[in-house]
Design a protein around this nucleic acid. Structure first.
Lengths: 220, 220, 220, 220
DNA sequence: TATGAATGAGGGTTCATTCAT
DNA sequence: TATGAATGAACCCTCATTCAT
């Protein structure tokens, strides 16, 4: 199930597919993909436009034709993440029950454990860095995590939980928190273990009354 | 109890207490305090030595008398955090039971909610930024979060939990995760709510026999 | 014969030919020429990139577009000397006999006496300074003197001297030694006199059978 | 014979003889000795007062009590070399004939071959570096090489050579030149070979009439 | 005399951004 | 559109020199 998902979130992008001429139209995409990857691995502040340009195989001077400033490119990266999470939620929507969808999210987390243990969560580390600013960029990045929380809240609500918001926040906090710990301690097993714990936790929430009766679910 | 604690972790240090000349002995401390504050508010990469020097009211050139490089100063900041957490654990040790100590940690978290919702967790955001590097600094910073987890594990162990490690990781992950969310969404209430949830969760763990998988509490 | 030579080795390059804009292509050359001149006159360590940039009429920041580091620029200067000595040896090759070539070298030395008596031999003083380092630059610069010796050895060999290597070393040592003395004592006549002595010495070697220890000439 | 000599010229000085309190009087000497050594190994420009102070085990601030400026310390180093050459000439004076004295000088050169092949001639490299300046320091350093030449001239004159000056310049040029080559190519054998050649050259000068009959000599 | 602690003027280097073509 | 080449502000760091004690 998470097959397709597992390749969504991680920063993708052409490594160096030289040889055939690419239309100018996709240069922008290549830049965003390269920026996403490089920024994920190095952080916004450390990453250089020259570095991104090189990774995208685009002349430095040309970058400014597509992005007025470095911040504009970072903003495009954020937008790119937004799209990725759109794809993700579409994938998750294939699950028939809210519990299944939530558990699929956790399994998606677990599937990325090695990557997360190296550079952390792309969204989390980006948000963490941008939290130090007072830009539009900060609030821009914030919408992604907010969207994730909202999505989880919808699921918990569908389970009949009146504390859906609280649970959603708790779930995403655990998600981001374990990604941080795994990256900091460079230990992917932390994610597996915590993933298992979260799966059980979600199950436990489903079995207990909370107000409205939860819908029956098909997936375990 | 957390009265004193609440002033430990947050970056301390005189903002600009000009007027009376301070002897050189404490200059180093002033620099570390200023660095801690400024780095907390702006991030490592964005923070300039000139900025730190100004915040500490020390001539830029003089900084290098105390710290050979910027990294050395950052390292001193990390060490400063290590000491702060030493103080914190001493405070927490005043609680008679492990449950009390764990809950005191959560209360300490809650007491800092406004600060956390502004710049995030000092340790978490610092670690997140340093996770992008491969320095000694990265592993240096990692020891602090590792220490926190170890501390929590000891408490859970003292509660008779055989899954103490897993619980400790989960607790600190929740701690760091909620700090990140609060900062990103700029919403301190997230911390209060999650703090409450964690307190109940800790209580629930205390009532369950060890060996069984810990069950998260269901509702508030 | 040495007319053209005399303008090869000495640092060349426009001093400040302002007025007509030069295209970027030759900027690199201008920088190398300026660096060569300034370094020759001031030494590597004393010379500032800002100084070189000013001498080349290039904005300081722009220097780094052409040379990644100061050392890279110094390396380019060394390469520039290598080329100059290539030109020199081509000129010397016009002499029909090895004796003629060796004597032409000495005459080249003599023709530069005023310059040498002011700042010393460009290669010698550069090598002397770099000898204090353990860089790649040190060995880089060394290849030039090594090349000179090799060239002289070839000539002596062509004269039938079995002690060609020893003679070559002696000749270049005398060459560099007299340049140092002339510069230190600021006396160009030292070079003229020693030049004459070396010419006679070369002639005397030509008359003696190889295998016998070379005998220096006795008087002028 | 050159036993004592061989330890005169090379930069000497206490390495780190801590443990017993030294009188303040010799601090100056320690500084000069340390400066001599460090400058010999690193060059004037590269050498830091802090480095010298550390090598001499003298607090940095204290250096300025003995030497008003860095240049003053360099000047003292030059003076120190002057004294060393005084000692050297005294040693050489023990030879009964001028030829013996000249050959003893060459043997002194040869005895230092390993050191010379590493850092070059202390006087030569110092002069070479100072030749780039227009200081008093430049002419100050020049007096040492001038003194050496003068000394050699006296010897050649005593041999009855009317071209004594020219020969003296040639000898010292060969001396400095071979030291430069050996250091640049990092090959001590160059010095041995050239030393042998110079010895034979001196002998050959002694056997040939030049005007005045040379004095008989005792040593070979 | 002695010394730890300033001080401040650079020096090498980076980099977002702009310019000219 | 595209791009090589500028540009200049800023950053980290060094170091001779001075100061206060």
């Amino acid at each position: 199930m998470t097959n397709s998902l597992s390749s969504e979130l991680p920063p993708a992008g052409p490594e160096h597919s030289r040889g055939n001429v690419r239309r100018g139209a996709d240069k922008r995409e290549r830049l965003v993909a390269a920026a996403r990857r490089v920024i994920y691995e190095q952080g916004v502040e450390t990453t250089t436009l020259a570095h991104i340009a090189a990774a995208a195989d685009v002349p430095l001077g040309n970058v400014y034709y597509y992005f007025k400033t470095k911040d504009a490119l970072v903003s495009a990266v954020i937008e790119s993440y937004r799209q990725s999470y759109g794809v993700l939620s579409a994938e998750l929507a294939q699950q028939e029950s809210p519990v299944g969808r939530l558990k699929a999210l956790v399994q998606f987390l677990t599937s990325r454990r090695d990557q997360l243990a190296t550079y952390g969560c792309p969204i989390g580390s980006l948000s963490s860095e941008l939290d130090k600013r007072e830009d539009a960029l900060r609030s821009d990045a914030a919408t992604i995590l907010a969207g994730l929380i909202d999505w989880a809240e919808v699921q918990f609500r569908a389970m009949g939980r009146e504390d859906a918001r609280e649970l959603a926040v708790a779930l995403i906090a655990a998600y981001e928190g374990i990604a941080l710990l795994a990256a900091t301690l460079q230990d992917p097993t932390l994610i597996s273990t915590e993933g298992g714990r979260l799966l059980r936790w979600i199950d436990s929430l489903n079995q207990l009354p909370s107000g409205n009766p939860p819908r029956a679910e098909t997936t375990g």
